[in-house]
Amino acid sequence: MQKDRLQKMMMLAMMIALDVVLSPLFRIEGMAPMSSVMNVIAGVLLGPFHALVMAFFCGVIRMLLLGIPPLALTGAVFGAFFAGVFYRWTGKIYGSMIGEIIGTGIIGSLLSYPVMVWFTGSQQGMYWLIYTPRFIGATLIGSAAAYFVLTVLKQTTVFRRCQQLFGGVKINE
């Protein structure tokens, strides 16, 4: 029981570290496809709750250390949560990918507008769908990359063991 809890915390910390380190390295201006990669992997590996926790802490760390605006939170948390939920519903990587696209690409992008209006104090040059094309583009790129990573990872014993630890569903494809 205590050992499982410790292993969960270590896996969660490792996923947070990977996301914080990889997201700025493979960043396209206005897009964070590596964040989508990590959200899909976390949704499959950790499940909805722990994926949400991972995305939240990653967003806060990136905001504090890298000066990224609150978009780091509004985009990532919904995508990570829905990636986990859709994966649990379907048991397929595609489910997690669709959850990420809906959560980050649609819900996160639409919620980013009022957050950024509040954050910047200005509506000049901003409209409701300003973030949607970039967020959807990033989620499509990130989800496709996550698919290839997960197809390799699913064959490893360590990945399956970690997935079991978090009560995950085996990948059916």
Rank of each mutant, 00 (worst) to 15 (best):
Y113E: 00
L52W: 01
W128T: 00
F166N: 01
I171R: 07
A145V: 15
V117N: 01
F82S: 03
F82V: 05
E173V: 09
L6P: 00
M14C: 15
D19N: 15
Y127L: 10
S112L: 14
Y131K: 03
M54N: 06
N39C: 12
S122P: 07
L150G: 03
R27M: 14
T74H: 05
Y113M: 09
V60I: 12
K170V: 11
L46I: 02
A13F: 07
F49I: 13
T156W: 14
G167N: 10
V37S: 01
L18I: 14
V77R: 04
I28F: 13
F78E: 05
G121D: 00
A80H: 00
R62W: 05
I102W: 13
V60Q: 08
A42Y: 01
Y147A: 08
F119T: 01
V77A: 12
Q124R: 07
L165W: 04
V152G: 11
L65K: 08
F135A: 15
N172S: 14
M11D: 07
M34H: 02
A83N: 03
V53S: 02
L129T: 15
T157L: 10
K8W: 06
L129A: 15
I16G: 01
I41H: 03
L22E: 02
R27N: 10
I141A: 01
P70S: 06
M63E: 06
Y127Q: 07
A146Q: 01
A32N: 03
R160Y: 11
S35K: 04
I101Y: 04
M9H: 05
Q163R: 14
R5G: 13
A51R: 03
M14S: 10
V44S: 05
V152K: 13
G105Q: 06
G108C: 07
A138I: 08
G84I: 02
A17D: 03
G168C: 02
A83H: 00
T90W: 08
R88T: 12
M1T: 06
G91R: 13
L25P: 00
T156S: 15
R5W: 15
E173D: 14
F119W: 15
M38S: 09
T157S: 15
L150I: 11
T132Y: 09
V149L: 12
D4T: 05
G95Q: 06
S143K: 00
P69H: 04
V117Q: 03
A146G: 04
Q164I: 09
W89F: 11
R160N: 12
M15T: 10
V20N: 04
F78R: 04
A32H: 02
Q155M: 08
V149C: 13
L65T: 13
Y127D: 06
G43S: 07
G91N: 02
V53L: 13
M126W: 04
L66E: 03
I101A: 07
A72Y: 02
V158I: 15
P70L: 05
A51G: 04
R134D: 13
L73T: 01
K170P: 00
S122L: 07
Q2C: 07
A51I: 02
I107R: 11
Y131L: 11
V115H: 04
G95V: 04
F82W: 09
C58T: 15
M10L: 15
A138E: 06
M34K: 11
V169T: 14
M11T: 13
F56Y: 09
L25N: 05
